[in-house]
Each structure stands twice: as structure tokens, then as C-alpha cells.
Amino acid sequence: MFLQGNEACALGAIAAGCRFYAGYPITPSSEIMERMAVELPKADGTFIQMEDEIGSIGAVIGAAWTGAKSMTATSGPGLSLMLENIGYGIMTETPCVIVDVQRAGPSTGQATKVASGDVMQVRWGTHGDYEIIAFSPWSVQEMYELTIKAFNLAETYRTPVFLLSDEAVGHLREKAELSKDVEIIKRSPKSDKPFFGPGALMPTLGQGKKLSITGSTHDEWGIRKTQSPEIQAKFTTHFCDKIRLNADRITEYEEYYLDGQTTVLVIAYGFTARSALRAVELAREKGGKAGLLRLKTVWPMPENKLKSLPTSISKIIVPEMNQGQVIREFR
């Protein structure tokens, strides 16, 4: 199948079981929305164009609590508007997927031009204490596959998950194999377990439970505990630990020419990793001992992998389509 990255993302969402999309169109992400508008009615799902990005993420979080797997897609300017509610999604442990097809910023910047300026925005953009999961696809194939994974991790860890794409991958057209036989994580049926915290299962409105869902600090039953330092500590630790302690399960990366002979290592993510691989191969043609570590997840970082890099490496290059953001993780 010859299709565009953004279209592959929409089809991946449908394959992963997404049945609710709310969004506001913005270049270079709009094709995701357009395709979801076509596909969701066919899959008995719901599509809605909201008044803006704040409304979009609000609807996505709300839909998740009705039992639907839900998604939105945007670009940097829209993501800036969504960040407050993304914090609400983290605090309420709401599984959902947010696609950011990055373009050049700050502000409205260059709508049709590629950049990787939002890497730190997805990591730290909303306030408070938390960890985040963000995938970084480099091909049309991965726009499909990693969207599915994003949905699965959102369910597993009960948190908003980012697909951090960019204009180059979102608008690229390539051949891709879109397997229908995909592993998806279904939401658990009604349970008597607590609603929040370690081991809690995502409840659904309308199952006969009295659900209290709040962005304020709350206990495992959702009851506001805005004065308790113990509950505050317990839950922020939980938001971080559920990702930190599972980082080796979550993180994905690929190695090219990375062994005990490698002297120059390039660490790259997203579309840049394709140019980086080309550069590494050109260097090797000339006898350079270059290698590439390609991050499929930018958050969390594969810390254990980074700690065990070969000692032969004397130089690390981190090319990015920004003025230097992820490189600070390695300094």
C-alpha cells in the first residue's frame, strides 16, 4: 500500500481500537483528522471537530472515561493549548493518545516546514511531577505500528501517550504493510479494585460505580486529598514509577554499526535518524567507524542502553531539527 504517514497513523488508530477522535485541524497534522472523519463512522466510532485544541483534548479525556479508546492529533501551536488538560489526563490516569506532527516554531512559525522543536514540550510542557511516554516514528510503516503501540501503552500504564511525529514523516508517502493482525490491549471489564494508583484498572462511567474524577490530588478512590503530603507523595511517585520502573519494557531503539569498534556514535530520532543513517553509511564508505543509535521512543530514554555503550566511542553526535534539545540528556 502506498500511502502517507498521517494516513497510516489514522489507520493504525482504527486497528488499535480507537473509536473516538476529537480535534481541530492544523498543518501538518490535518490528514490524520481527515482520515479519522472517514474511518470512524465506518467502525461505529465517533468523530467530532471541536472549537479548538483545548476542547479537543477535553473531549478525548472525557471519551476515555466512557470506555472508548480515544485520540487527537495536532501540531506545536495546538499542543501548547492542550498542555493544561494533558496534565489533567496524567493526574486522572486517563489512557489516550496525542499525536504531535511537529512543524517549525515557536508560535505559528512555518506551518509546512519540518522541525523537532517539541521534544521537550511533550516531556515537560504540563506542570507538576510526572513521567511521559513518547514514540518517535521515522517511516510511514512506523506511523502505523507505533500508533498501535501508543494505544497499547496508554492502556497498560493508564496515561496519555504521545506519538511525536514531524512534518517530514507525517507527509511522506511510502509503501507500507498494514497488518490487520495486531495485538491490542483491551480495557478491563468492571472490577472491584480501586480506581487510581498502583494496580488500579481503568473504570468506565455507567458501570454502577460512583466515580469521582478530579485533577486535584486524590486517593485511590478518587476522593480529593488536597492537604495530605502522604497522598501527594504517593501519587506523584506512582505517576513517575509506573514509567521509570518499566522503562526497559517501554523503550525501543535500533542499533546500526554499533559495536566494540565504533568510535563515533550518532544518536538520532524521528526523521533526522534517516538522514543520520545515510551520513553514517557515507562515513563508513570512507572508512570511518561510525554507528547509529536510533531512538524509537524519545521518552523515556533508554538509560541502561546509554550506560552500556562501548568504550571505543570517543565522540557522540546528536543531530536534531532544533537548536539542541535532546542533546542535553547526554551531556
Binding site: 502506498f2 498543518t27 509546512t112 517530514a168 507527509h171 511522506l172 508517502r173 511510502e174 509503501k175
Partner: peptide, 23 residues
Amino acid sequence: ANLLGQMAGSEYKYVSAAAHYGP
């Protein structure tokens, strides 16, 4: 360009098409 990419799909194992334009 996209149509050419689609046409070439059956004969070439790897095909890509990328566009560059303004707002």
C-alpha cells in the same frame, strides 16, 4: 508525484514521495 509513486508501487520494492510547499 503521488500518482507516479502509486504507479511505481508494483515494480519497485521501495517507493517514496515527498512534497515541499508553502502555506
